[in-house]
Design a protein around this nucleic acid. Sequence first.
DNA 1: CGTGGGGTTGATACAGTTCAAGATACGTGG
DNA 2: CCACGTATCTTGAACTGTATCAACCCCACG
Lengths: 229, 229
Amino acid sequence: MRQQDWSTVRALPLFRDMSEENFAALMNAAFLQRFPAHVSLIAEGDLPDFLHIVVEGSVELFARHDGQETTLDIVRPVTTFILAAVIRDEVYLKSARTLSPAQILMVPARTVREVFGRDAAFARAMVNELADRYRGFVRALKNEKLRTSTERLANWILQEDRHQGGTRTIALDIDKRKLASRLGMTPENLSRNLAQLAAHGVRSSGRGIEIKDVAALADFAKPNTLLDG
Amino acid sequence: MRQQDWSTVRALPLFRDMSEENFAALMNAAFLQRFPAHVSLIAEGDLPDFLHIVVEGSVELFARHDGQETTLDIVRPVTTFILAAVIRDEVYLKSARTLSPAQILMVPARTVREVFGRDAAFARAMVNELADRYRGFVRALKNEKLRTSTERLANWILQEDRHQGGTRTIALDIDKRKLASRLGMTPENLSRNLAQLAAHGVRSSGRGIEIKDVAALADFAKPNTLLDG
DNA sequence: CGTGGGGTTGATACAGTTCAAGATACGTGG
DNA sequence: CCACGTATCTTGAACTGTATCAACCCCACG
């Protein structure tokens, strides 16, 4: 990877505090790869070769079992993924594929583990990162166990609106079937749930979702920072 | 905490490799507390005061939302819990209560963060611990999203049998209602699911579960290391 | 144009919950 | 040690949430 491209990665909390030397060691071993859309990046069950960092585009993390498939997360720039597998040198629990054309920075897993062993600041940053991700999954599990699919959708809309700047107009950048899978429901069910939310201040048309009445939606969704982050 | 009680804690992967001095700093600030059964230890939403380590007895981690409650994990000796909240100094996402009389080692959160900042071996051990827990929650979420409740029960039986030594005779040490909640179902449903598993080599009576035909059970359960750990 | 994939809608089936009633186990106090 | 009261567990019936199957619509794209 060329040195002028390092800055955005260097700015990540995970790399911000480590020594210049060790950061260079990581980056010199790394390479930036372009992928087309809908390409498999990693497969669950394989041993980790690289720590992946999404620099551009979006990546789906998903898992399969017994003919079923579910989306676990959708990762956008600039974020690392499959950090836990790399650190423990154990098989991936998730598969990953590109959803759009993407640029992925790939750092050899061996190098990550080496630098991790000798750079205390990097190790500390890793703890923070992992603790944060851990909490994300705790929230996801609570969300799944304590809410109905309609409630999950309602809260996703509120949250996504916040991420997109609170304009009360959400533009979907992924297929609805993917969204359905991420929210733990079938595409048919997402359709019906969206229709149902019309009674709670939500208007939807094609790839756009509009919140007509935030209060009504929030009243139905019962948002909770201990579940939604 | 008295020095002769340190050894079991010192043997944990989390503390094994740190300096004698820093370990002593943690332990000198810590104290061992006895609790009766069914007592609240921490409440979700509170800020962490202590890192908890179960030394004896069992502890339930659970969460509430909108009148519902679900068990997220049941922790047995010797294990830390709520590590992520302590490290990030953010509110607990889970509540905890004792299920039996218990001894809990409580290390002040401030001390943990201090030692974490100056002991690289401790920081590295923490990464490993967190990565491991993280993967546990990934598995839990996959389990929840990709399996029916009966399948979750079947796999729990297989797994619990392994933990109890593979004798094909499982002794429940918690209420069935707790088990139901941990497996993401109602007590009524657990009853019915157990009855259903009779057709797949499982016999249950009171607090005992017997596997009469492992092959038949496994055939139904479709165990998968990427979901069951 | 036609063709195909995503999206919606409807009908039906299944999984899981809820409510209610009985059965069983369990600790307590007599 | 037994009798009682209480909580847990089981079973049944009705209901809700969600999935499945199928038809149809719609738009994008060759």
